[in-house]
Each structure stands twice: as structure tokens, then as C-alpha cells.
């Protein structure tokens, strides 16, 4: 994300536990409907498991759990956003996918000081949209904290 005043970033919006989130679109590889997730015993609470996406093995992270939100009642109809990091594929399990928005970088506000600590870790700031707020997800941090939590 550049800091020049006119630059803007394209966000893919998504809902997780009722909250609107945005993910920089250049990081999104696919959006797919997760099928046949193989659970990984002994893994972290927020890792749903692994699945086969066109011959690649994708590690699926449940964003609700990652954000310490209550589990969804049924996994039916939920979606996954495919991202790549360091030659590996990950899928972020979300509730639903929304539209793509162009948002000016200058309108990005930093995280409110009283934001939940867990959210602060993964949030790259907040955009004020009409009617609701969009929390920008920082993909690298989403992936990083899981590594940290494992290391701990």
C-alpha cells in the first residue's frame, strides 16, 4: 500500500461474524467453497484443517476462531479466500464474500486504541464506509500470529 495521497487500494470485502472486513485484492488468489476439509488432530484451535485445491494442499484457517468470534452454527455455505504466502497456500474461512471496493488510502484510519487486542494484531486499519466500518485485514499478520502462537 502506497502512502501517496491519491493512491487507492482495491479491497475484496467479506463478512466474518457480522463484521465487514477488507482484504487487499492483490493478495487474493481464489475464492472457493471449501469442500472435504481434512481435520488435523493436535493442531491449533483456529486451523480447520487441510484441503485439496486443484492439486495443491491448502491449510485452512477459520477466521472466526482466529478473531475469537463464536463458531458459526453450520459450516454450510461458508466460503474461503485463497492466499499465498512464502510458497504455501492458505485458505481463510469466512462467512460470505462481498463486493470489491476501491478505497482511498488517505481515508484509512489507524486502529482505535480500545480495539480488541486480538483484532489489533491482524487489523491494518479501519475504513469508514457509509453505514458501516470496514476493518482491513493484514494477511501477513493473520498468518504470522498463528506461527507465533505455535511457537509459544
Amino acid at each position: 500500500m502506497s502512502n501517496s495521497p491519491d493512491s487507492s487500494t482495491e479491497f475484496m470485502t467479506m463478512k466474518i461474524g457480522g463484521q465487514l472486513f477488507g482484504l487487499a485484492i492483490n493478495r487474493v488468489q481464489d475464492v472457493f467453497s471449501p469442500d472435504k476439509i481434512t481435520k488435523v488432530p493436535l493442531s491449533d484451535h483456529d486451523i480447520s484443517g487441510v484441503l485439496n485445491l486443484r492439486g495443491r494442499i491448502v491449510t485452512v484457517i477459520d477466521m472466526r476462531r482466529r478473531l475469537e468470534l463464536p463458531d458459526r452454527k453450520s459450516d454450510h455455505g461458508c466460503m474461503a479466500v485463497g492466499i499465498e504466502s512464502g510458497n504455501e497456500s492458505f485458505g481463510l474461512l469466512i462467512d460470505s464474500v462481498g463486493e470489491v471496493l476501491h478505497l482511498k488510502d488517505e481515508n484509512l484510519e489507524s486502529n482505535p486504541a480500545n480495539l480488541d487486542a486480538c483484532w489489533t494484531l491482524v487489523s491494518g486499519g479501519v475504513h469508514r464506509l457509509e453505514g458501516e466500518l470496514l476493518v482491513v485485514l493484514d494477511v501477513d499478520r493473520v498468518l504470522a500470529i498463528s506461527k507465533e502462537s505455535l511457537a509459544a
Binding site: 481434512t38 487441510v50 485439496n52
Partner: peptide, 27 residues
């Protein structure tokens, strides 16, 4: 054998994962 994702590599019970004939991932 495909290596486990870095996130899951610390689980000593698994040495890797693979895709089976039926397309599912198995540990």
C-alpha cells in the same frame, strides 16, 4: 509425500500430507 504446512509442522505426529486417489487430503 508433501511437506506439512509451516503452521502445522510442529505437530510431531505427522510427517507430511498427501492427496489420495479420491482427491481428499490425508495426513
Amino acid at each position: 509425500v508433501k511437506p506439512m504446512s509451516t503452521m502445522l509442522r510442529d505437530i510431531s505426529m505427522f510427517s507430511g500430507n498427501t492427496i489420495l486417489g479420491d482427491g481428499s487430503v490425508i495426513l
